[in-house]
Write a protein that binds this DNA or RNA. Sequence first.
DNA 1: GCCGTTTTCGGCCCGACTGTTTTCAGTCG
Length: 594
Amino acid sequence: MDNIYIANVFHEIADILELKGEDNFRIGAYRRAAQTIESLPQNIEEIAQQGRLKEIPGIGESIAEKIDEILKTGRLHYLEELRKTIAPGLVVMLGIAGLGPKTVLKLNKEFGVETLEDLERLLPLHKICKLKGFGEKSEENIKKGLEQFKRHKERGLLGKVEPQGQAIVQELEKIEGVDKVSLAGSLRRMKETIGDIDILCTSKKPKKVIDTFCTLPQVKEVKAKGTTKAVIILKTGIEADLRVVEPEAYGAALHYFTGNKSHNIKVRTLGVKRGLKINEYGIFKKSKEQRAKIKEKRAKIKEKRIGGWTEEEVFKAVGLPYIEPELREDRGEIEAAFEGKLPHLIKLSDIKGDLHTHTKYSDGHFSIEEMAKAALQKGYQYILITDHTTTVGITHGMDEEKIKRQMEEIDQLNYKFQNPKSKFKILKGVECDIRSDGTLDLPDKILEKLDIVVASIHSKFGMDQTDRLIKACQNPNVDIIGHPTGRKLGERDPYQVDLDKIMDVCKQTNTFLELNAFWDRLDLNDVNCRKAKEKGLKIVISTDAHHVLELDVMRFGIATARRGWLEKEDVINTLPLEQLLNLFGKGGKRIQNL
DNA sequence: GCCGTTTTCGGCCCGACTGTTTTCAGTCG
């Protein structure tokens, strides 16, 4: 039973309870539990077997029992009963932007709306605007929300959204009086998918910034516009939110708008315990008496402002060291920070070479020499050329004959690139297809001659791939498994595979798993990177570049690795050339001794 | 429902914008 399935059970419980108007804190507890479970690096079934469910923060007596029930029976009586109390379509309607539980319930009570179709039929009758507390605008907004929902607003992919965010940042930086501009939200945390672009900026003249933001050429629609905040829809369909604050609030606001939500709540709660109020305007100290008064009379009392210029101040105020944005997911980073056990995250500049690249020998667009020059320009010490083999269906993929020719060309180029001042080497490799029976697409006598062999799956995604991959790992010539779960974000789910088992086999056979840095793959993902690290495995971060410019996607791989808590030592292509070659050695499996 | 250098009971982060209202509820992040 996978973690996501169990997490979804608790999300659904939270949704239904929300519709029933239950206590918000109880709802929050289910949500928190769901979020925690979906980002657990370990399989929850294992934790349950060890009787350690309640050690997970946010999981107590009641939720632990429910998890056990789901694991044992595959069902949850409590949820089944809950479902009977409410029309199933109502939960779906919560997904419409602008429609919350109160509105959905009201529409249900007043007009018997139970499904999206009911809502669609109701709208043209213009009855909603007659309801108390509703008007023309509210009705219009519900209509817009429904249309958007039907268009299936998907989250954008990091690699597509990030450039759009950067472009806006650059525009805002040009405005007179603007001091600092930064991306915030999931984009700053470098999540693999992005809901909207969050931007924070400091200026004494917020109006000017807001006006410029709302009239940028890429704006399609202004959704909200206030004195310090605006929301726009870009022509690409992505939403962008801008917040303008005073310079002295920059750190507090940046922390607040970077999130995620549950990380923020934890930090603020820590603040409350220390008699602090932390919001986007700064860190404020209030005495006990003041807090009592606020509660009693709801009186506005001016607290003393004690910081907020930098994010470091926010963390320091609650007794924590600085936590990198990519870690801020409430996945144990706050606890680790308290214990002084935060990882020293890997940086882009740690990378010494790319171990998965394509050339004109298969489906790449550039020659070996052009790819090598591009790698050299990035300051790399090596590039591994890994063209496809024939069964991938790439016309003119690599057969025995062709790969021999490629090796000769690489030898010649390496001779040409020789330079006593700088070390650089083009390494001979291949991205060898793993056939459905787990055998490889090239004979061992060829694979043996290569420096490093990447093996990956490119076909028959429907089958369970566990045995197929295990067999590939056991081949002494296979060094790296490329894009290990085969997913394509927004296109194809990961294939069926027992990754735990694969990782164990990798450990035994000294095979490395790839983190494919291309932004529609990012495979392994952050959670699996962390799992691999916990199992003591090392990772390769490669781009799978088919174009010289695509070597740049390395930064998305690094971001994902950072989200997976990886350090320089966890990634083998941070090694300098000689050490890397020692690691892979000649003939057969290497010694994984770094 | 969870949790405990305020608490095993009584708390639980905080504010902006919108639309509908004359002071606020709902939604969102």
